[in-house]
Design a protein around this nucleic acid. Structure first.
Lengths: 239, 239
DNA sequence: CGTCGGGTTGAGTCCATTCAACTTCGGTGG
DNA sequence: CCACCGAAGTTGAATGGACTCAACCCGACG
């Protein structure tokens, strides 16, 4: 059940059997969530950290006027709130965008990992660093990319991340978000989100029907997005 | 010279003398930079990580059309590219916004810290997690805040961060950026940046003259910004 | 067969952009 | 000494992107 986590960590550096066992031992419980439920509640101080093993989730914050902004997607294998292990208080919520299955990792056991397994600790740390790199890319997209380029970039990113954990089928992947939710990802109004999607469809770089996104022309999409996967740090090397 | 780093780490949890000594030992060299120079070059694979000890710097990315987007400010005490220790390749550049002095930390020695000093490792990790939390707040600001609120939020954040490392004077702090650079922070055109600044000035919550920002009315500014410092994780507790 | 959530389209308004002019101010050289 | 210069800031006007409000379509589902 922890396969996706192994796949992600392995992508950065080799994972020993001992390390796998240690990770498995950190897990104390399994839990399922419905669409729309919070995996982690903003403001809470969790005693467990959550590994997403199935489904799609997202980090978000809500403003006083009710506006919501997603700040990241979480795919299977993501340690979605490893942050809380050290930050203690969650500064944001994490919501299920599709039915989700998670594994809960005990903070006391995670602490023991940091005491006894430096290499594994570095790999977990790295995981949170990649999160940060993704955030930076989102900031650039929101600030300086056209809406179409922003959307194209998100699709490239998701495709690559999902491929690592074997959640793609050919050039397609399941994408359960409504356009209204997508608007909260890109910081647009629903109406305008719709027009941007229409625009990207017209380029014939993607199709997006039935909660499935298919990349029809990767090169064209990547060009529109100016997508450079360096930030995802997808090389296996000693860390 | 490492005082600002100690101040920042201490803010999250107590730092022992041993840990201070270990940090001091990690430093192998000191270096100065002029305004506009890159402290760290995008795409490089540094063998050292950089602690900023004096000055203001910023992370940035550049797009094909020449557009630049800053993704974070770095203040004294920030381990500006601790990322590179594990990410290996820098996915973005870091530029000096004022004359900067930095200390270089050897990656091999940092690795030794992760092998021998788990608590210190957790504190350094935490530092990068706070970076991530700041990124999330920036995404929210870019996506769902009004420009005036966004600007107000940036000022609140900077004030609080600078206060931790004793770089404020009363309710004022030095802020060397031009409006053009500020436009690259907020993802706006220079002209519009100017108008947003004028708008915020008119509220009389701040003054901004002569490269110095003064907060005239914190409560009003924080209200405009909807500023909640939780995300900066400024509580001292066992980590 | 009606309803409801999502998606799509149109029209008018507002925010942000571009291009352009003009001001201010510190610095530099005749 | 001051005339000129360049960089940064400010302002105006026209264009275009994004927002709101509103209507309408459509397929799933009771």
């Amino acid at each position: 059940m922890l396969e996706p986590l192994y796949l992600q960590l392995q992508q950065h550096d080799a994972l020993s059997d001992d390390e796998r066992a240690m990770l498995a031992d950190v897990i104390v419980r399994e839990k399922d969530f419905e669409v729309g439920q919070d995996l982690v509640v903003a403001g809470s101080r969790p005693a467990y950290s959550t590994v997403l093993v199935e489904g799609l989730a997202a980090r978000y914050k809500v403003l006083q006027n009710g506006g919501r902004q997603f700040t990241a997607f979480q795919v299977p294998g993501d340690f979605v709130d490893l942050h809380a292990f050290l930050l203690k208080t969650m500064d944001h919520g994490i919501v299920a965008l599709s039915p989700c299955r998670v594994m809960l990792a005990d903070h006391a056991k995670l602490r023991a990992v940091t005491e006894q397994a430096p290499h594994l600790t570095r790999l977990l740390w790295l995981d949170t660093l990649v999160d940060g790199a993704i955030h930076r890319e989102w900031i650039v997209a929101m600030g300086r990319r056209s809406s179409a380029s922003h959307l194209a970039h998100l699709i490239c990113e998701l495709y690559v991340r999902l491929q690592v954990v074997k959640q793609t089928e050919g050039m397609s992947f399941r994408f359960p978000l409504s356009q209204a939710e997508m608007a909260d990802v890109m910081g647009l109004s629903v109406v305008h989100m719709n027009r941007v999607i229409a625009e990207l469809r017209k380029t014939e770089a993607i199709s997006w029907v039935n909660h499935t996104i298919s990349i029809l022309d990767w090169d064209r999409l990547a060009a529109i997005a100016e997508f450079d996967p360096t930030y995802l740090s997808m090389t296996t090397e000693p860390r």
